[in-house]
């Protein structure tokens, strides 16, 4: 598949994803040996999923519930 590097894809789309209420972050993961886009959310809900893309420029998007991310973690 001809697609841009995932680093570039993340750099392009992260600001827009972080602007969605409930999104805490993004990252580069892997599934089945293939790179995937990970979107971290405070809580995984159908409403939020409906607003998230299923793929970005040829990379599958996987949603992970991070919870509220704190330092210190509580």
């Amino acid at each position: 598949m001809n697609r841009p590097p995932i680093t570039d894809v993340l750099a392009r789309h992260t600001p827009g994803l972080l602007a969605l209420k409930g999104v805490t972050g993004t990252g580069e993961g892997a599934a089945g040996g293939q790179p995937i886009v990970v979107v971290f959310v405070r809580q995984d809900t159908p409403e939020l999923r409906a607003r998230l893309p299923r793929s970005l420029e040829g990379y599958r998007v996987v949603v992970r519930a991070s919870g509220e991310v704190t330092a210190p973690p509580r």
Partner: peptide, 23 residues
């Protein structure tokens, strides 16, 4: 599970954004 992570982190004084993190 993930690298090159951008994550918004709640501190006592506010939210800080971290890039290039490890999950």
């Amino acid at each position: 599970e993930a690298i090159n992570v951008t994550i918004r982190v709640q501190y006592t004084d506010g939210i800080a954004t971290f890039v290039n993190q490890i999950q």
